[in-house]
Design a protein around this nucleic acid. Structure first.
Lengths: 192, 192
DNA sequence: GTCTATAGCATGATAGAC
DNA sequence: GTCTATCATGCTATAGAC
């Protein structure tokens, strides 16, 4: 809080950049994950933008982290059913192809163990699977999901389906990702 | 068959390049999808390699097409159960990370409508979904899958899960893609 | 048919003025 | 803090020798 003025300003500006970047990418779409292109989108020079981030990879990683934060704040929360939250995010994604494209591109690049954001995505996926598996277990305890459903596997499958549908949707935007995910949820929850 | 010698030679050499490329990528892995790197892997200069393909994109598209052909010939066929075939391919993929990496990277790039291989992947996914949906319908007719399962949606979901698991597997190779897909198939086929 | 050499472009990063 | 300018790199594609 009581940090030096210039430092606090830097932090604030960083946040502002991330927010604007998200907004611009959501509204105007996005081709390549290049610093130059993003810089002019947020009305800075390339050097000006990179002044706040140590590298291209950190920049885009932070944009995606911010996006997760915003999505969680918008579609998550105590009162909302986890599946509704997920479907909310996915429906929203269908309105922001640029963000989907950016995510797919960066997460794909980060699969290389040498990529600076590799650890970030490893942790992110592990965390999401964990939360989802926990939810499935709770549903099983409540008798709403059969016991022969494997929570960990279903969690990985659910996340995988959401990811994979993005590819198919980008290739053919007539595909409704949310509807498909809802159908998957029906498959998971139906009682034998 | 009875084409001019030089032309036939060109075709034959093209095929040989694709076969060797597949083999090398499968054995030694693959970092970036660059023509240079592949060229030295198949023991040609970059220019020598590009003599047989009009562009980088065509080259990698043809490698992936060839891979599909090989996979179909190896794990497909009349006598083999479609799910066994798919699981065979997926199990095999776990032995060839380089091919998985190449596929994910190229298919992601091709999501851009401007990408030269865009149409190839649009058609490929539509075809695979179609075949799978047809299979689900047959299973329904045989009474082995419930009628409230939507063949088209399940087809898209199955393919999506297979794709998405690749990302998770590359980030954490301890994940068994084939086991997960088998579990998904159980979810689809269990009777309510 | 295959090579060497190079053109031509896009990128990320940095130096230095203001 | 932000800019302009530039550097260094990596890439695809092509020209031209052999």
């Amino acid at each position: 809080m009581a940090r030096r003025g210039s430092y606090a300003k830097g932090i604030a500006k960083r946040e502002e950049i991330l927010t604007v970047a998200l907004d611009v990418i959501a509204r105007t779409g996005y081709r390549r994950a290049s610093v130059r292109e993003l810089a002019e989108a947020v009305d800075l020079s390339q050097a000006g933008l990179l002044h706040y981030f140590t590298s291209k990879e950190e920049l885009f990683q932070e944009i995606l982290r911010k996006r997760d934060d915003v999505d969680l704040a918008t579609y998550g929360g105590e009162s909302v059913h986890p599946i509704d939250g997920l479907l909310g995010v996915i429906s929203h994604n269908q309105e922001v192809p640029g963000l989907v494209q950016l995510y797919v591109q960066v997460s794909t690049d980060a699969c290389d163990p040498e990529h600076p954001s590799h650890a970030f995505f490893v942790e992110r996926y592990a965390r999401i699977r964990d939360v989802f598996a926990q939810f499935v277990r709770a549903e099983q305890a409540a008798g709403r999901i059969d016991d022969d459903v494997d929570p960990e596997r279903v969690a990985a499958l659910f996340v995988a389906a959401a990811d994979g549908l993005q590819t198919q949707w980008m290739l053919d935007p007539s595909i409704d990702m949310a509807q498909h995910m809802l159908h998957l949820w029906h498959l998971i929850t139906r009682r034998v």
